[in-house]
């Protein structure tokens, strides 16, 4: 009996989100003209890639029991920094990429250091960083969009490789790398151990502080990458871009079954959460639902998806 229950729980942990996704997808496919076309589905994938990269990054942090509220501001700062380097040469590409990702890495490093060395709650640290980074993005860009970027840089967001838009490929790479780290490596096991029971993990020899540093750095680096993709998609570095992006990313991770108190979460679940948010946004636009109702419907579906996931357990 007990074993059967565990089996059932595992089944829903694995497939509850998938079930929600299939339900929402089917409803949209049946009610929304144009939703199922290949070009529309490609559009959805291109649109979700930024939130997807962020959501996968924050999944690492949430699994250790932390949170990162500075994601949206990191996106803006990394985007602006990358853009400043991208407008200098005719085909500047490497430098802006390095600048954007380094920005994210440094942000992650600072977040991680204050959380581990300063013993400050991640919520507070990243809340503070959220406004510090937004301010920095405004200072660096003088409060204006940074435009006239090189064609090579703009091609990241607008171009494709073998018919697949590059943002989707970047997102896929992030998903594969993250899945392998969390599922197949020792550090991945340490991430779960730290979030599941930090004291026990520490007692059994896991350097939990280093694990936490690692998750904030990887989350920051991904946010830097997302900033690059966004800036190149809209051909400008916008200091006010990315406001409340962290909320969509956290929502996606949670819909995908990541537990906010730590220890539980999977990259595949987060990807499904990202897809759910993405098809809702797209479907509601296709149906021309007014923005008032869009907000209500999105909220209801987010809570509903989590309810289906949790109650079935």
């Amino acid at each position: 009996m007990k074993e059967a229950n565990i089996g059932k729980e595992r089944f829903y942990r694995r497939y509850g989100v998938l079930l929600s996704f299939i339900i929402i997808f089917s409803v949209l496919a049946l009610t929304t003209p144009g939703f199922l076309s290949l070009s529309n589905l490609t559009t959805v994938l291109r649109q979700i890639s930024i939130n997807g990269i962020l959501a996968v990054g924050v999944t690492f942090v949430i699994i250790t029991g932390g949170i990162d509220l500075s994601l949206g501001s990191t996106v803006a700062l990394a985007g602006v920094t990358a853009a400043l380097f991208a407008r200098q040469g005719g085909d500047a590409l490497a430098l802006p990429l390095i600048a954007g990702i380094t920005t994210g890495l440094v942000v992650g490093l600072v977040n991680g250091l204050i959380v581990t060395r300063g013993k400050v709650a991640p919520f507070i640290v990243t809340l503070g960083m959220m406004t510090i980074l937004r301010g920095t993005a405004l200072v660096v860009s003088d409060g204006r969009p940074v435009s006239n970027l090189s064609n090579a840089f703009n091609a990241i967001g607008g171009g494709d490789l073998m018919g697949i838009p590059i943002p989707i490929l970047v997102f896929l790479a992030v998903v594969v790398v993250s899945h392998v780290i969390l599922d197949r490596t020792v550090i991945g096991r340490y991430v779960y151990a730290t979030g599941g029971n930090e004291k026990a993990a520490y007692a059994s020899g896991v350097d939990t502080d280093r694990v936490k540093m690692f998750v904030y750095v990887i989350c920051g680096a991904f946010a830097g990458l997302a900033g690059i993709v966004l800036a190149s998609r809209i051909n400008t570095g916008q200091p006010n871009a990315g406001v409340s992006f962290e909320l969509d990313a956290i929502a996606a991770a949670v819909i995908g079954g990541t537990n906010l108190s730590g220890g539980i979460g999977k990259v595949t679940g987060t990807v499904l959460g990202v897809l759910i948010i993405g098809i809702i946004n797209n479907g509601l636009d296709l149906l021309n639902v007014t923005s008032y109702y869009q907000q209500i419907i999105k909220g209801v579906i987010i809570i509903g998806a989590v309810l289906i996931d949790r109650n079935k357990r």
């Binding site: 871009a241 946004n281 007014t290």
Partner: peptide, 21 residues
Amino acid sequence: KQSAEWDRAKAMSLMENWIQV
């Protein structure tokens, strides 16, 4: 008609969706 909240990226996504319909 639809809101994109004054934002370039949001308007781009909205337009992409509209092009589909």
